[in-house]
Design a protein around this nucleic acid. Sequence first.
RNA 1: GCUCCCAUCGACUAGGGGUUAGGUCGCCACUCUUUCACAGUGAAAACACGGGUUCGAAUCCCGUUGGGAGCGCCA
Length: 485
Amino acid sequence: MSDKVRVRYAPSPTGYIHIGNLRTALYNYLFARHSGGKFILRIEDTDQARKVEGAVGNIISTLDWAGLDYDEGPVKGGECGPYYQSERLGIYKEHTDILLNNKKAYYCFCTSERLTALREEQQRQKAAQTKYDKHCLSLSEDEIAKKLSEGIPHVIRLNVDPCAKIKFQDEIRGEVEFTGEVIDDQVLVKSDNYPTYHLANVVDDHLMKITHVIRGEEWLPSTPKHVLLYESFGWKPPVFAHLPLLLNPDRSKLSKRQGDVAVEDYKKKGYLREALVNFIALLGWTAGDDREFYYLDELITSFSLDRVNKSGAVFDILKLNWLNAEHLRKKTDSELLGMLRLELSESKYSSLEFSDEFLLNVITAMIPRVSFIKEILEKGFYFFEEPALYDEAVIKKRWKSDSSAILCKYAEKINQYSSPQKEDFETALSETAAEMNVGNGDVIHPLRLAVSGVGGGPGIFDIVYIIGKEKTINRINRISEKLKS
RNA sequence: GCUCCCAUCGACUAGGGGUUAGGUCGCCACUCUUUCACAGUGAAAACACGGGUUCGAAUCCCGUUGGGAGCGCCA
């Protein structure tokens, strides 16, 4: 079937994957999977100067991390390869020759100095827009041949008719129209013989039989150039869909400076892939109902381009955090255990040994209180080490002159059990309070301070049961010494 | 400056001629909990402005204002 959906994600290997690019990839992926089409990965490495070592590997592993598997592309291969533009130079050459023969494109021998001067002059004269003056268009065949044989550096430009009207249907925005007047004679082939984005992109999209070009809104202004190229080749353009931008809190295009922008950063910070994917899917798209929680396969089922929004969306980290907590709470115990063990192995507690039972108890106690697994180590540090100091505010509020005596009594009580259960810790506490003639709170709060050093956290009986009798008694003795009075 | 795109609570959004303009995050309060969370309940919070069209406009049209993006031998 020739009308089978084929979409692509076409990043340039200049480093990390930007969160906005991940969303573009995601929408392409969702659209492809929803319609039973193909999702293609193509590496746009035509800029020699910006190439970054290892970037392709990073792109592939990031897509893999997010769960966006592609059907054709680097490593995997496919019928329309190669999938690196740097390996398709011959193809671009063939196609520029077609354009040159058609007179749709022409050689330009202008130096960058002349171009800069031209641009400055136009700016000085407050021209409506700066654009190439078609200076080299008037060169004769002989002049061109001569310059070429002399090896004079040159580029190849698209010959744009200023009177042309370029109209296209955008799947998200409707009809968009430009006039040729505002379109520059775009460089198609650079002096190093590499194609620019515009040429390579159009040629590859056509040859790779791409049916829908789903990309960021920043491409909208150059789409008329692409449409012109399709027309120049006599090809049918694909359907265009320009996605709204992801924005900083100040509504400028999402960028570093105002927060993390690399998918890597979010991964490092402990965000779950499910949460990130869920979150960015909702930035610019909604199924129309009130649903907020989705897994990837559910997104595939629900996704459609016609419910994508037109306006930019601010990346709100607070909502991402919430979704992360939601996804975390949906994890099974064994998944959480694995995650906690991994976190532990990378922490200062890496040399310590903990049983599965102990860790599972900690997870149960802490999971409603955290948004990230690593927070279990941060907020629940007292499960892994003795508190080094005690929260001053809590001391002031909860530590009374008789607290030490009360806790010692409690220590004696629990010491009578060989292996106290949670209920035993509780019984011991009410007995202590009764015998000391104080309220339960007069035991509970100092006890919490003694074992955890802080004023909040899981139920006190959960904590003491989890850390055990020995440690509880040790910590009671320790605080009694430290806070004599 | 020019071109194009956009405009509902602080944020993400639903609604697309007649709605008490709905939901989610966040914020606040209450309930639960002798703590902190989770959970539950409730509150505050929006149709940028001006003209049309219409019996009736958040919704359609025009303009204004505001915001954004693009204007490279980068992608």
